[in-house]
Simulated assay, not measured.
Amino acid sequence: MTKQTEELKQQPGLILQPGPSGWWDSERVSSPCVLRCADGKWRMWYYGGDPHFDREINLPTGRCGLAISDDGVHWERVKGPLTMGAVFEPHSDPNRFDAAHVGVSDVTYNNGLYWLWYFGGDSSFTQVGNMRAKGLRMQPGCAVSADGWHWLRLEGPYRGALLPVGESGEFDELFCGFPKVVRDRDGSWKLYYHTLHPEKGFLVGLAVSEDGLHWEKAGQVLGPGSAERFDERGVGTRHVLPIGNQYVMFYEGVNNSGYHCIGIATSTDGEQWEKQDGDATGGSVFAHASSGSGRWDARAVGTPCVVPQSDGSWYMYYIGANEGGSDELTSQHQIGLAVSKGTDYGQWKRWGE
């Protein structure tokens, strides 16, 4: 048994750690996007970085890679054709929106193609309060692939991006990143993204499309919860699924102490959302491990990706972060799995608990 296998067994929920030295993801892994494919294999696309990736970009993004599994629990990395085994990386054109760093936030399968919905930033600096941040003006993009391994970018109208950053005074003037996409039964598309407003916190926006290529913003659809809730500082990454006769949004919320949990909101039209109180910390449905426990996910659980199982239960893949780090690069990001209590997607436990 390898040291990493033993560590996985001892840490409930943990299923994928950073890669070995020399790989593109040897420092951090984040944002699992999982599909159960027609060939019986499970595929996970995720982003991360190595210790030599641009340290001025204080984000967990960098490049993207692929892992494959027979059961959705035990994963093996696939060495891709790009830098250090990645399958997707920043564009070589410095004038594009995604020239400095990229991150995958959704993968869908439509019309015989994998669609990779990603976000990226360039090398410009943005002043946010007292912080001068590189690569923060992120925008969404899209790429397609026949095999999930070799990707072709689809060119959007905003230096390659699908959407522009908001104008001065708009809620998304800082960035519009981390896209998640839903294709409705009528063939139209919805793209959910989030941003950070200096006063209002993390906010979720919506864009709509008739073809998945040309998008129009529809405004903010979700924001911070009330004081003492797990999402009092705002709502970030999310996964929206049509379940029954409604949309269900599994979303990452953050409190004023910087701890992250996952909650649920529901909607009948995908535009007007109502948060649902859960039984975990602060009204969440899945909380970080106890503070001070030393667990790998004691500070944050987020970037939920929810996959239905044949027996009616659900798997939720997520990123966990430990306590002790002072920013995105000093906390350790790893990937975990939670399992629903039967068919109830409002009750979760970590794999292995």
Rank of each mutant, 00 (worst) to 15 (best):
T2L: 10
T5S: 02
Q17R: 06
Q17C: 01
P18Q: 10
G19E: 08
S21I: 07
E27A: 14
P32R: 11
C33G: 05
C37Y: 06
A38I: 11
A38L: 05
K41R: 05
K41T: 04
W45R: 07
G48T: 11
D50G: 04
R55F: 10
I57S: 12
L59I: 07
G65L: 11
L66E: 05
V73W: 06
E76Q: 12
R77P: 05
V78S: 15
P81K: 13
P81R: 07
A86V: 05
V87H: 08
H91Q: 12
R96M: 08
V102M: 15
Y109F: 03
Y109P: 00
Y109R: 03
N111D: 13
G112I: 01
Y114K: 02
W115A: 05
W115T: 02
W117G: 03
W117S: 00
S123V: 05
F125A: 09
T126E: 08
Q127S: 14
V128A: 03
V128Y: 03
V128I: 14
G129R: 14
R132G: 14
A133R: 15
M138K: 15
P140I: 09
G141S: 07
C142D: 01
A146P: 11
D147S: 00
W149Q: 14
H150T: 11
H150Y: 10
L152M: 15
Y158G: 12
L162T: 09
L163D: 04
E167M: 12
E167V: 04
S168V: 10
E170H: 10
F171R: 00
C176L: 02
K180N: 04
K180G: 04
R183D: 07
D184V: 14
K190T: 05
Y192L: 04
Y193I: 06
H194E: 05
H194I: 07
L196C: 12
L196E: 15
H197F: 01
P198D: 08
G201C: 05
E210F: 13
H214D: 07
E216M: 07
V221N: 04
G223C: 01
G223F: 03
P224W: 03
G225Y: 04
A227C: 00
A227S: 07
R229E: 03
E232H: 00
R233D: 15
R233W: 14
G234R: 13
L241R: 02
L241Q: 02
P242Y: 09
P242V: 01
V248A: 15
F250C: 02
Y251V: 02
V254Y: 06
V254M: 14
N255P: 00
N255K: 09
N256T: 15
Y259S: 10
Y259V: 02
H260G: 01
I264M: 09
D269G: 09
G270C: 06
E274H: 13
D277I: 10
D277F: 00
D277E: 15
D279W: 02
D279M: 03
D279N: 03
V285D: 01
A289R: 06
S290T: 14
S291G: 06
G292C: 13
G292M: 06
S293E: 04
S293L: 00
S293R: 04
G294M: 03
D297Q: 09
A300C: 15
G302R: 15
P304K: 05
G312V: 04
M316Y: 00
M316G: 01
Y317S: 05
Y317K: 05
Y318Q: 10
G320F: 06
G325Q: 08
E328T: 12
E328L: 13
L329G: 10
L329M: 06
S331A: 07
V339P: 04
Y345T: 09
W351T: 01
E353W: 10
